[in-house]
């Protein structure tokens, strides 16, 4: 059991400030996902927690102890890297056992622990192999095995799925979710740029932009109540439509946001009307790209669509799902 507490964390490289005054409370046993566009500082924040990077100012606590100056190996954390960082010249067994070896554990105990982890991750028959003889999914499991075997209180994941192909990614996502179930007491911090991963796996999501925390909340909170244009645009696929001008002014907002699935079609002309430019048919859904006076809008229709390209369409947002944003792009409640 270990909670993580970040208080006013700043991190600079030279004059470039990567992390700006981040404060965060991660509860013990929570699965938390840092998400944001590339360069937002999410990986740096993770590396600061791991101790691979030193924070410039602020306090970092793990398990209620300040760890600012504690080296990575003494923080009780384990890390799964994007590249997995498996030692190419060591067998799977040696890879998993390396940390135990460094702790000076007796050989027999290392063997027992590694074999137990191997069994848990279905790697038993691969223990003598070198990493290069493993498939992508198996490598991922070895990387996770290295984290598990140490009994770390905190697992840190740095975009672990981004090297896998789409099918494998879905499978590994499920495996990590299952791992979380099997280790309910382990706090997990997971970094990704993929909002789908964030939505599907997280207990809570931390959205970062340009080194700042934009919003923290459960996936549905972020989806339903984004606190800013940025978060609203980042969470959800396809992206939320942002409409300015008359329709927004009518609702006393600078901008209103409507998700593609939250439009209705009207027979009579509305404030938002335009021509259907292009249609993408996915089978389960159809995406309609409508060119309007406020820009291109995306509309989602379940199943097939009856509308033809070039047809004039009148769109009406469903009132209860309209998000209003003020002058500073923050949500108006």
């Amino acid at each position: 059991m270990a909670n993580i507490k970040l208080t006013n964390i700043n991190k600079s490289y030279g004059s470039a400030q990567i992390i700006k005054d981040v404060s965060l409370d991660i509860k013990s046993g929570e699965f938390i996902v840092f998400v944001g566009p590339s360069g937002c500082g999410k990986s740096t924040l993770l590396r600061s927690i791991s101790g691979l990077d030193q924070v410039t100012s602020g306090t970092l606590e793990i398990d209620n102890a300040v760890v600012n100056d504690v080296p990575p190996s003494k923080r009780g954390i384990a890390m799964v890297f994007q590249s997995y960082a498996l030692y190419p010249h060591m067998s799977v067994f040696e890879n998993i056992g390396f940390a135990l070896e460094n702790q000076g554990l007796p050989r027999a105990e290392i063997k027992k622990k590694v074999e137990a982890v191997g069994e848990m991750l279905q790697l038993t028959s691969y223990l003598t192999r070198l990493p290069k003889a493993l498939s992508g999914g198996q490598r991922q499991r070895v990387a996770i095995g290295r984290a598990i075997v140490r009994g770390a209180k905190v697992f840190l994941f740095d975009e672990p799925l981004s090297n896998l192909d789409a099918a494998l990614r879905v499978q590994m996502r499920m495996e990590i979710a299952k791992l979380k179930r099997d280790l309910p007491n382990t706090t997990m911090v997971y970094v990704t740029h993929d909002q789908v991963e964030a939505m599907t796996m997280a207990d809570r999501i931390v959205v970062l932009q340009a080194g700042r925390v934009m919003q923290v909340g459960t996936p549905m909170e972020l989806y339903e109540n984004p606190n800013s244009v940025f978060v609203a645009g980042f969470i959800g696929s396809p992206k939320m439509n942002f409409i300015t001008g008359l329709p927004a002014e009518k609702l006393k907002a600078k901008t209103i946001g409507v998700r593609p699935e939250h439009f209705e079609f009207s027979k009579t002309p509305t404030d938002i009307s335009g021509t259907l430019d292009y249609t993408e048919v996915l089978g389960s859904d159809s995406f309609l790209y409508v060119s309007t006076s406020t820009g291109m809008l995306t509309v989602r229709e379940p199943g097939r669509t009856q509308y033809k390209t070039g047809q004039k369409l009148n769109l009406k947002p469903i009132a209860e799902h309209v998000h209003r944003f003020g002058q500073d792009d923050s949500s108006l409640k």
Partner: peptide, 14 residues
């Protein structure tokens, strides 16, 4: 520096 999480171990590591 082998004693786990001991403050002196951390200092020695540094």
């Amino acid at each position: 520096a082998n004693a786990n999480n001991d403050a002196s171990a951390v200092r020695n590591l540094r």
